[in-house]
Simulated assay, not measured.
Amino acid sequence: MRIGELARKAGTSTRTLRYYESRGLLTARRADNGYREYGEEDLLLLRQIRTLQDFGFDLEETRPFVECLRAGHPAGDSCPASLAVYRRKLDELDGLIDRLAGVRAQVARQLAVAEEVRAPYAAGVDEAPDPPRCEMTG
Rank of each mutant, 00 (worst) to 15 (best):
Q48A: 13
E5Q: 14
D98W: 05
S82R: 07
L100I: 03
E37R: 14
Y86T: 05
R23A: 03
A71S: 13
D42F: 04
A119D: 03
L83E: 15
Y86Q: 15
Y121Q: 08
R36K: 05
A81C: 02
E127W: 15
P74N: 04
F55A: 09
V85K: 14
T137A: 06
G124C: 02
E115F: 13
I97L: 08
V107F: 14
L46S: 14
V117R: 15
R47W: 15
E67V: 01
G56L: 12
L17G: 02
Y86D: 09
C79I: 00
I49V: 09
E127Y: 08
R36D: 10
R50E: 14
E116R: 14
P120F: 11
E127K: 10
E40N: 01
V107D: 02
P129E: 12
L90S: 09
G72V: 02
G76Q: 00
R2G: 03
A112P: 09
I3Y: 01
I49L: 11
A75M: 10
G95M: 07
M136A: 14
G34W: 02
E116K: 14
G72L: 05
P131C: 08
L93K: 12
T137M: 08
T62P: 07
A84G: 10
G95K: 11
P120L: 08
Y35H: 15
I3C: 05
A75Q: 13
E67S: 06
D58T: 07
Q53C: 02
P64C: 08
N33S: 15
R50W: 04
T27M: 10
G76K: 00
R88A: 13
I49K: 06
R8H: 03
M1W: 13
Y86S: 06
A81M: 09
L46V: 07
V107G: 02
V107I: 12
Y86A: 12
R70C: 03
R133C: 02
A105F: 02
G76E: 00
L52C: 09
R15W: 12
L43N: 12
E135G: 11
A114E: 03
P64R: 11
G124L: 06
P132W: 14
L83K: 15
G56F: 12
R2S: 09
